[in-house]
Simulated scan of single mutants.
Amino acid sequence: MAVEKGLRADARRNRDLIVAAAQDLFLEQGVDVPLEEVARRAGVGVGTLYRRFPDRDALLRAVGEESLRRLDDLAEAAWREEPDAWHALCRFLRGSVELRLGVLPAKLEPHLHQGMRAGADLHEIRQRVIAGVQRMTEQAQADGALRADIGPGDIALLMTLQVYTPAGMHNEQAMGRVVEIVLDGLRADGGSPLPGTPLDEDDLHHYTAVRLPPAQ
């Protein structure tokens, strides 16, 4: 996890624990969960939490940034460790859904979400994720494994797939089934033609672009 420079080892550990606890609780209960509950889950005092994160927005930004960094790590590991681009793409999409990337943005106030995405320090990592998605998509198609009517922008949409879990069904089971159905549909020998045209590189950049409100 990337952290603020100059933190002592104990302060760094506390920060990491807080961000991890916040991520879990925001996904489980929503972004309005009491920060005291975040501190309890992290095993730190409330004062420690507020020293690192003066308000809820600061903590939300840290959680969002950490999710993006984990996504970048996931893309790099999949490309490096899998035998080919198709298996890398499958691993990447499975991991993206496990990270529940679409849940947190859906719970955020839109202006805060855009502000989080506008951070200059995240531009480089965002560009690496975009490049990784393009690389996996193009190579999997060149290998004949990924259907031709899919573009990298389509993959970006699937990265934020949310799965509703019915009462009584384990969340991981539901997500796993849906992801495998999606992956089967991405195969080169997949079923019915898709409506419209593939979402291409321009759509991928548009999907990840930051659109801030006009200055007053």
Rank of each mutant, 00 (worst) to 15 (best):
K5A: 14
A9N: 12
D10A: 09
A11V: 06
A11K: 10
R13C: 00
R13D: 13
L17M: 13
L17D: 13
I18R: 04
I18P: 03
I18Y: 02
V19N: 03
A21I: 04
A22W: 04
Q23G: 15
L25H: 05
L25G: 06
E28T: 12
E28F: 04
Q29N: 12
Q29H: 14
L35T: 05
V38G: 02
R40M: 04
R41L: 00
V44Q: 00
L49C: 00
Y50K: 04
R52C: 11
P54L: 09
R56G: 07
A58C: 09
L59E: 01
R61D: 07
E66N: 12
S67A: 13
R69Q: 06
L71P: 01
D73R: 15
E81S: 10
E81K: 12
E82T: 14
E82Q: 15
P83V: 02
P83D: 03
D84K: 06
A85H: 08
W86G: 05
H87G: 06
H87R: 15
H87S: 15
R91N: 01
R91S: 13
R94F: 00
S96I: 02
E98K: 13
R100C: 05
G102L: 10
G102N: 09
V103F: 01
K107P: 02
K107Q: 15
L108I: 02
P110W: 03
G115Q: 12
G115S: 10
R117L: 11
D121W: 10
L122A: 13
H123P: 00
H123T: 10
E124V: 08
Q127P: 01
R128Q: 08
R128C: 02
R128H: 08
I130A: 15
I130K: 11
A131G: 13
G132E: 04
G132H: 08
V133N: 05
V133I: 12
M136G: 00
M136S: 01
M136E: 03
T137H: 06
E138D: 14
A142N: 03
D143A: 14
L146G: 05
A148W: 06
D149P: 05
G151C: 08
G153W: 04
G153A: 01
D154I: 08
D154F: 07
L157G: 15
L157R: 14
L158C: 11
T160Y: 06
Q162K: 14
V163S: 04
A167E: 14
G168R: 11
M169Y: 12
M169I: 15
H170C: 05
H170A: 14
Q173C: 05
Q173Y: 13
A174G: 04
M175S: 14
G176V: 10
R177K: 10
R177G: 09
V179F: 07
V182P: 08
L186F: 10
D189I: 00
D189C: 03
D189K: 07
S192V: 11
P193K: 08
P193Q: 09
P193T: 07
G196F: 02
L199Y: 13
E201S: 14
D203P: 00
H205M: 07
H206R: 15
H206C: 05
Y207I: 15
A209F: 00
V210L: 01
V210D: 02
R211G: 05
R211M: 13
P213Y: 02
A215M: 09
